[in-house]
Amino acid sequence: MRKGFIALLTLVMLSSCQEQAKIGFVDNSKLINDYQKKKDIEAKFQVEIDAFNKKVDSIGQSFQALAAEMQEKDPQMVKKSSQEQYQALAQQYQRFQQQFQMEEQEIQKKSQSQIDTLIKDIRSFVKDYGEKNGYAFILGSNEAGSVMYGEESQDLTKDILDALNAEKKD
């Protein structure tokens, strides 16, 4: 009995001496949305989107003015030539709308590409951070609930965000 007790006590002592795996987590949404580089990308594309919208509005107003002028000249649009002019104007406006849609899609595509690259960079940074700081795991929390609870002391979001933003300044 005494030997069994000593063996059990030895096992307990050995297991308590083992180093626990270091685990932390980050709030993915906060990490990405508060990263200064992402804010810079969004600001850059917002300028591009604003310029695009001004162009669309300006051309739209020009077409509306032309259409109003045509209707003013011939309110009943009875003449064949007036109808043809109006249809030509409508077709031209439709071509511009298609061009606008293509430009808008291109802006969205470029923006998404840069955000995707940014996310890959963040993942790589978190991996390096974990390796350098002795973490066995760094989990990501998100709305889907991959980390439903974590002790606040294990939340690395601010530390990693500060390190990411500091790296950007260098």
Rank of each mutant, 00 (worst) to 15 (best):
L89E: 05
K120W: 01
S113D: 09
E106P: 04
Q83F: 10
M102V: 11
K120N: 11
D121E: 15
A136S: 13
A136P: 07
S113Y: 01
F125T: 03
R95A: 15
Q101I: 11
F100K: 06
G134R: 08
K132H: 05
R123I: 04
D121Y: 06
G130Y: 01
Y135V: 02
D121N: 14
D128S: 15
S141W: 05
E104N: 14
K120A: 08
Q85L: 09
E106F: 08
F100G: 05
K127T: 12
L118G: 00
Y86D: 05
S124Y: 04
D128A: 14
E84L: 11
K132C: 04
Y86I: 09
L89G: 03
N142H: 05
Q83S: 08
Q99G: 13
Q94S: 13
D121C: 04
K110C: 04
Q99C: 10
D121Q: 15
S141T: 01
Q97M: 07
S82T: 15
I138P: 03
E143S: 13
F137L: 11
Q99Y: 14
S113T: 12
G130K: 04
F125Y: 09
I115C: 01
M102D: 01
Q97A: 09
D116K: 13
Q91T: 10
D116T: 13
L139T: 01
F137Y: 15
Q108P: 00
I119L: 06
E104T: 08
S141G: 09
Q87P: 01
K109A: 14
Q99A: 15
E103V: 06
I138E: 06
S113F: 07
K132G: 06
R123A: 03
S111P: 03
F137S: 04
E131D: 13
E143M: 12
M102H: 05
F96R: 15
V126A: 02
E131H: 07
D128P: 05
A144R: 13
